[in-house]
Amino acid sequence: MLHLILGGDRSIFDWVDWNGFVPQDDYLNNFPSVGANGLFFYLITENIDNSLDTTKWIVRTSDPNKGSPGAITAIVTKSEASRAVIVGGFKAYDAKNMVLVTLKGPDSSSKGANQATAPKANLPVDIEIIGETKQGITLSYSFRITRWFINRGEYTDSHQEQNDWCNNLGDYKLASLRELSNANFLLHQGKYGNNPDNYYKRAVHGGLITEWGGLAYYQGDNFYNPTYGWTSDISNSTGSPIYINMNDAALNGDRDDQHPYYALCSSK
């Protein structure tokens, strides 16, 4: 059985052992549905040795322009079991039963420059990861990426400056709150979905942070750890921009737009 060491809804998320997302019958409901350059997850096959020493892994994508700057793909590398424990504290597995899958795709030409650019992401794209073991077992996992994100590294700024930075990338904009979170924001936006709380409920198709979890776990991939980030939405009650907690996707709108917060840009 395949598991993903990240992870929603009881029907797709292993709440018992906190193992992360579980593969679905329809690959369109598999994790992840959104991504960014450098985000990673662990692909686990219980009781099957899938390590690079015993298994040949290949990655196929539906993108006919695989060599273009906007191409999105994944790479499979040797797992780091200790790293899996850090990422959310999930159940530890033997390293021979897990491989590390890292998304690769468009990123900005610079994080600090106001005139940074980024290639338009080739979306949507289907990605299939296939492994052939020495025992003749074929392993396959597929998912579709429908939205792509670019972060601004360690740079924080006012709402207007971050909005402008995202727009200047070309085919990106400051992400909306629903592109990031499925938290219920009663005070500022009204009831949303079936999540009663103002923090994420892990789910596929629920937004970047809802799917991937706290972005502090990805600091090595230009996802630094400022607590808050701006969204493109405005609070109904305060008239101020809504900002998001970058680690539990909680939403708020009680600050003026000059606070120096993080930026996540989403594909248009």
Rank of each mutant, 00 (worst) to 15 (best):
Q115F: 08
G70Q: 08
N47P: 00
G239D: 11
T55Q: 04
N198A: 07
I130E: 12
P241E: 13
V76E: 01
G220P: 04
D257Q: 15
I242H: 13
S82V: 09
L103M: 15
D63K: 05
Q24T: 08
N97V: 00
S235T: 12
S33N: 12
G89Y: 10
G88D: 01
E154N: 14
A71V: 07
N198V: 10
V34G: 02
E128I: 10
E128V: 09
Y261F: 14
N50Q: 08
I209G: 01
S158A: 14
D53S: 07
Q258I: 08
D164N: 14
T138C: 00
G207K: 01
W18D: 05
N245P: 09
Y172C: 05
N163K: 14
I127D: 04
S79N: 12
L169R: 09
N247K: 02
N184Y: 07
T138H: 03
Y27P: 01
C265E: 12
L180M: 12
S235I: 06
T156Y: 06
R147G: 04
G105R: 13
V101W: 01
G20C: 02
R60K: 10
Y192W: 14
G88F: 14
D171W: 07
G8D: 05
K191V: 04
W212I: 12
D257V: 01
L187W: 06
H259G: 02
G67A: 12
G89E: 03
W18A: 02
Q115W: 04
